[in-house]
Design a protein around this nucleic acid. Structure first.
Lengths: 221, 221
DNA sequence: ATTATACTTGAAACACTTTTCAAGTGCAAG
DNA sequence: CTTGCACTTGAAAAGTGTTTCAAGTATAAT
């Protein structure tokens, strides 16, 4: 059986590999976790993960940890659910204005979120939603209403059709549904709203346009 | 500008990463090419590839070569299994003779295979097995008998010990177990047969010798 | 013939990584 | 209280891998 620590280490390996394109060394794994002071400790856990079939690895080969893409690790049973929540910074309200909302000084506070909602900790933040432009959109079984918080994965920069994305267009932050025409390549950002005043936004290459992440969850107010 | 040698090296890196889930070391790259006797030579080419923007790499970090897919670094994760079944061309029977069996005109038909058997679609084909030279070998829980089909991953060109490989030696196709002596570097191809007439084949550098893929599955007749 | 380009050679120095092992800690169940 | 489990510690040895450099080769273009 796999333990909570090993699951954390697994997640770190996955996220490290995603970021860099290669696996971490045992030394780096140890460095990343305060409960591991030596590579030998990382070795212990990595060997466990390997024995359980969650990763593959080759002896004496640096950075040879590989992840099986079709194998998901279930979060082990948590004895103390309270300790398993994490703090996520709340940034300025979504449609409030300039792109500078991403600066650190605009952090409004922190939201406490159960870690099981998320795949990874880094790069996720919360935004308070203002307006009704997305009140028909659904993330899981929730809609997005004024005053709710949306969790945004800022590492997700290559949206697929129908993803709800956070974008900044001409210095204005928006939460819209992403739609790209596979033939013309034209990108459209659609409001999923009961309010007809929200028209789709067509992106032209001259617009100052950026996808800042994907909405992965909604936390009702 | 990139040269032909560099393109070859690039392709090797890609195929190695696909097979193993991690990048090769400079030493391994050098070993793989007869025109490179030292890691420093591989270093030279890899640096070129990096300067030209074809790969990314980190200084002093072993096996940190990464390949760009679009603009994102493609992590060499192991691929997962899909859902539906796919068509795989059936080539001429294995020991029927010359290497030209790989030409398209020798496709005998198609075999319908559940994709879950395979890691990837492209580069996989089926071969009908003739003879008893491998009837003791096992792929998963199956042996390889006359009349069976073996699935060959032709992108897998860097076999490990005990892999069952498809090779072409002096224009003759063979399915044998791959064994390389880690000290001498000598390569031996062994028949796993109850029939003692099948002797191991020792590969010398003067032989016209090529690994064409790895047997990844057996489909019983 | 000279120059430039595109490499290869060879060794050594240096850096990074893995592996091992014996001894310990802290916690929870019996 | 004892045992077992799930780890952590600490250091050192044994790999594995990268980088540098100076010198040399081979080919093609000027």
């Amino acid at each position: 059986m796999i333990t909570k620590k090993q699951k954390e280490i697994y997640d770190f390996i996955v996220s490290y590999a995603k970021d860099t394109g290669h696996a971490p060394s045992l030394e780096e794994i140890a460095e990343h976790f305060s409960f591991l002071a030596y590579p030998s400790s990382a070795y212990y856990h990595v060997k466990k993960l390997q024995d359980e079939g969650y990763i593959k690895r080759e002896s004496n080969i640096p950075r040879s940890i590989g992840i099986y893409a079709d194998k998901e690790i279930k979060t082990p049973f948590l004895k103390n659910a309270g300790l398993d929540s994490i703090r996520i910074p709340i940034l300025g309200a979504v449609n409030a204005g300039p792109a500078t909302i991403f600066a650190e000084e605009n952090i409004e506070g922190y939201l406490k979120v159960s870690r099981s909602l998320l795949n990874r900790k880094d790069g996720i933040f919360a935004l308070r939603v203002e307006g009704d432009s997305m009140n028909k959109a659904r993330i899981g079984k929730n809609d997005i209403e004024q005053g709710d918080f949306v969790l945004v994965d800022s590492q997700y920069r290559n949206p697929k059709n129908d993803d709800i994305v956070l974008s900044v267009i001409d210095d204005c932050a928006n939460i819209k549904k992403f739609e790209k025409d596979s033939k013309t390549g034209e990108v459209k950002l659609v409001s999923e709203s009961t309010n007809p005043k929200h028209k789709p936004i067509f992106i032209s290459s001259k617009d100052d346009f950026m996808i800042n992440g994907k909405v992965i969850n909604v936390i009702k107010k």
